[in-house]
């Protein structure tokens, strides 16, 4: 009887508690906005793509742990996260191909086919497009590793695995 019913995964249930339920709704929007701020100000102050990707991923992982895996918010699960990580790398490479279409070498930002006139602005736009690709890749990688680890905990039996003596 117990084998037929669906075994509950202890990390997929919501964590509970009224303090966490009401306080994460205030903290998480500020975390996500701060992550996007670090992404776009990456060329003016310390920051960049890797930091922004890690911050946004931590925000989403925290929501998933508190609310449980059944709610519909931030519903990016395992297979979709792997695909989106590849899309992030593709955005990075597509910037390089765009510069080759514009007439320069690979990843040479002065030849982007965008109607801007000053080459400083062209470099800033190229760096922003690259950092967006890196952010998406890092964020999706962290989310899909966490989903894979939680899926492994599905059979909640009492397995006694002892370390080597």
């Amino acid at each position: 009887m117990k084998n037929n019913s669906k075994k509950t995964n202890s990390m997929k249930r919501p964590f509970g508690g009224i303090v966490l339920d009401s306080s994460f709704r205030i903290i998480i929007p500020f975390t996500l906005v701060y992550g996007i701020y670090i992404l776009t100000h990456g060329e003016y102050s310390p920051g960049g793509g890797f930091q922004a990707g890690a911050l946004v991923a931590v925000g989403i992982v925290l929501v998933r742990l508190i609310q449980g895996a059944d709610k519909d918010s931030f519903n990016v699960t395992g297979p979709l996260a792997i695909v989106c990580a590849g899309v992030g790398t593709f955005i990075y490479a597509a910037t390089g191909w765009l510069t080759m279409i514009g007439g320069g070498k690979f990843l040479d930002y002065t030849y982007l086919p965008v109607p801007m006139h000053h080459w400083g602005e062209l470099h800033a736009l190229g760096i922003l497009m690259i950092e967006v690709g890196v952010t998406v890749c890092v964020m999706m990688t962290i989310i899909d590793i966490m989903d894979a680890i939680i899926e492994r905990l599905d059979d909640d039996t009492e397995e006694e695995v002892v370390c080597d003596e």
Partner: peptide, 17 residues
């Protein structure tokens, strides 16, 4: 940030050992 994430992963992986 990565220190926080790795603590979560280790505790999750420790549940089966």
């Amino acid at each position: 940030v990565i220190g926080t994430m790795s603590t979560i992963f280790f505790v999750a992986a420790l549940k089966k050992v």
